[in-house]
Amino acid sequence: MAAGGDHGSPDSYRSPLASRYASPEMCFVFSDRYKFRTWRQLWLWLAEAEQTLGLPITDEQIQEMKSNLENIDFKMAAEEEKRLRHDVMAHVHTFGHCCPKAAGIIHLGATSCYVGDNTDLIILRNALDLLLPKLARVISRLADFAKERASLPTLGFTHFQPAQLTTVGKRCCLWIQDLCMDLQNLKRVRDDLRFRGVKGTTGTQASFLQLFEGDDHKVEQLDKMVTEKAGFKRAFIITGQTYTRKVDIEVLSVLASLGASVHKICTDIRLLANLKEMEEPFEKQQIGSSAMPYKRNPMRSERCCSLARHLMTLVMDPLQTASVQWFERTLDDSANRRICLAEAFLTADTILNTLQNISEGLVVYPKVIERRIRQELPFMATENIIMAMVKAGGSRQDCHEKIRVLSQQAASVVKQEGGDNDLIERIQVDAYFSPIHSQLDHLLDPSSFTGRASQQVQRFLEEEVYPLLKPYESVMKVKAELCL
């Protein structure tokens, strides 16, 4: 049975990233139509530049190519590739079939990587351009969430054990800070992308030097003109047959890092959902379990974690691919890159769409948070109580021993009897502590235990987050809708 299948058929496997999760716009960027249309555009740009620099290419040939950029006979191309065992030459023939007058000058002087690699770089750039505003929107939604809850005390956790208090907004800023680093890295790697350009079979530009009869300047002009037509500021000066596969490492490393950030955020949300302090959106008709109707599973956060793990592992592909590119190139890269580049971007696209949807509907339960604080705060307040007693004339050592005994009794009630923490009640009825009984409410005010959390939130948002989001103001209103 021949390899390949009808990918629109229910009898043929289709990647869930495309069929179930990723956005239509990201799927289109990695589609065959987008790819092969870009090949034709690159052939047109090459012909236009070659004509401008004096090669015998007519206006009629150029116009014929322009008129057929979208006229792609995919069936013919597939048949040609089956016959020739070469995808680029299959599309040269297919393009030439609908451009008979231009057929002889299509791909003039070029090698397969002229269309293959340059198209990949265009796709990487455009895919990054799709991700950047999506990530900015996630940051914006979380920034709104953090600002609104900047002063809401909550129990902090280290080692997932109760620690000092923080605020809900401050905790959210930990998430935002990681995503801001990801946004900066995505922008950097996007701006650092260079075009492969017009380089020939081993990167020496020998074929173009021959076409222009040894004119170095025209060869350099050709490279520059096509690079500018493709919208790049610069091209690699040095290439082998391909652009260095280190570029793929750079791009997928940034995406993998984004995956790590999203995994951490969504894990926190899942843990908070278990504590009943916070939940992701839950639709009115949504079913959490087929057997347990009360369940409210954090399905979206779980999906993000599941896909983020996949995204983090994909960076190993370009690392290994770059390491086995012998001399000017081997074909070890080809099949692998067809999979890992598309999957990385479709996965990143999915987790950003999902995280935006989550961040637009996060639900906080202040009463649950308050109750958990009441359970733990008495123990945390013991040092403040000791200091207040010393100020009232008591002995630190005597007070410490009193607190120690009462704390152990209260802990026994919590752990052995399943009761509430009654340390404060014990202190309130103990005559030894009568000098500070009137101060206990103040000493137990949760806001006095959150330090500068709310001020940190305000400063972080104003100095770091809002300036970073400013270039994306025009796209901030787009909502994230999930079908599944």
Rank of each mutant, 00 (worst) to 15 (best):
S207W: 14
A127G: 10
D349R: 09
L377K: 10
S306P: 10
D420K: 14
R20A: 14
D144A: 13
C483S: 13
S23E: 08
L484V: 12
S323R: 13
G169N: 01
V88C: 15
F236T: 08
A102W: 10
Q375L: 08
V226E: 00
W326N: 09
D117T: 03
Q41R: 08
T321S: 05
Q408F: 01
R426L: 15
G8D: 12
A256K: 09
S257N: 11
L155D: 08
L311I: 11
T201S: 03
E464P: 15
D87W: 14
L331R: 12
L406W: 03
F208Y: 04
S412N: 14
E463P: 13
I351T: 06
K246W: 02
F379Y: 08
F195M: 10
C340M: 13
D349L: 05
V92Y: 13
I238W: 14
V413P: 06
Q458H: 09
L174M: 14
L443G: 14
F212P: 09
L121Y: 10
H97M: 04
I122A: 04
K199V: 02
E60W: 12
F208D: 07
Q241Y: 13
M26E: 11
F379E: 04
V368K: 06
Y34M: 01
T204P: 09
Q205H: 06
G259D: 03
A410C: 15
Q325T: 02
K246L: 09
A2L: 10
Y432V: 13
L193Y: 04
S151K: 09
L484E: 13
N68T: 07
N118H: 15
R196S: 07
G451M: 00
L406R: 03
V324M: 05
F236N: 11
D332S: 13
R374D: 15
A235D: 02
D191M: 06
L258Y: 13
R85A: 03
V405F: 15
S447C: 12
S23C: 15
M76V: 10
G451T: 01
A381V: 14
E148Y: 09
I339V: 01
Y243K: 15
L484W: 12
R329P: 06
L183K: 10
K276I: 06
V247H: 12
E302Y: 01
G393R: 10
L193S: 09
A235K: 09
I287Y: 15
S257Y: 09
L271I: 07
H217F: 06
M476Q: 15
E328K: 02
